[in-house]
């Protein structure tokens, strides 16, 4: 393991610089039966998000008389990883679903739709590192597509520490053999980062490294935000061109 060099000549294994994102592709409105949907590729992550609602809550006892409830399901397909993943929720995906839901709850205006539910389903078709950030990005685009009232949009990106260096948007090798990784989700409003909606960390970082990581993540998030915005606008621009 010690032989493995994750950084060589100031470049990462896939030739990226420390502050570069993996290539991102976003498509909006890919599922016709869903109220809002998004297909997103972030490096080798391939995820599909679908949003339904606001709709009636089933089972009924979950309904909140003062606001809408948000349900988020993060799920990995059995074929999304090299070794077959046993289907169904496990400890990891339940936790990711919870923190992601809490990130989105901060921006969705739930008080406008009492006694209803907003359901968000995100399926991972192919997993790389940072799948929760890819899922959050897809989910937030799908929410916009569904026309759900929100205060802003959520954009998510991770940073990692590999070979003592803080890098943006780690890929699988960096995640597995790196020293630490730290996913972020930001609330972006009017093209500016307003707050942090999700922050997790695995591994150890010093105070300065966290600060450095935050700056890097902010920069990456702004790039992703532009791509999210472009993807949404493109859907309506192409419709116009069909005339």
């Amino acid at each position: 393991m010690e032989e493995l060099k994750l950084i060589m000549d100031g470049k990462r294994l896939d030739g990226r610089g420390f502050d570069e994102l993996r290539p991102i592709k976003i498509e909006v409105g890919v599922l016709k039966r869903a109220d809002g949907s998004c297909y997103l590729e972030m490096g080798r992550n391939k995820v599909m998000a679908a949003v339904y609602g606001p709709r009636e809550v089933h089972p009924k006892h979950l309904a909140d008389p003062s606001k809408a409830i948000v349900r988020y399901r993060y799920n990995m397909a059995p074929f999304s990883v090299e070794e077959r993943k046993r289907p169904g929720p496990d400890r990891r995906s339940v936790e990711i679903s919870k923190v992601s839901r809490e990130a989105l709850e901060t921006i969705i205006m739930t008080e406008m739709f009492p006694r209803s539910a907003v359901d968000i389903f995100v399926e991972i078709l192919q997993a790389d590192a940072g799948s929760r950030t890819a899922c959050l990005n897809a989910a937030s685009v799908a929410l916009v597509d569904a026309g759900i009232p929100m205060k802003g949009i959520v954009t998510s990106v991770a940073v990692a520490k590999v070979d003592g260096q803080i890098v943006l948007d780690p890929m699988k090798e960096e995640d597995n053999y790196g020293e630490a990784d730290m996913p972020f989700a930001f609330v972006i409003r009017n093209g500016k980062i307003e707050s942090i909606a999700l922050l997790q960390m695995d591994g150890n970082m010093t105070r300065d490294e966290v600060k450095q990581g935050l700056e890097l993540a902010k920069k990456g998030a702004m790039e992703i935000y532009q791509l999210q915005r472009e993807a949404i606008m493109k859907k309506y621009r192409t419709e116009e061109e069909e005339e």
Partner: peptide, 26 residues
């Protein structure tokens, strides 16, 4: 004043509203 939904901006001197492009009926 911020937009809360995806939509078309309809802005005059006295009012700003967004004509939503998507969404459920209330």
């Amino acid at each position: 004043v911020y937009a809360r939904v995806l939509g078309l901006l309809d802005k005059t001197d006295t009012s700003v509203r967004i004509i939503p492009l998507n969404g459920k009926y209330v």
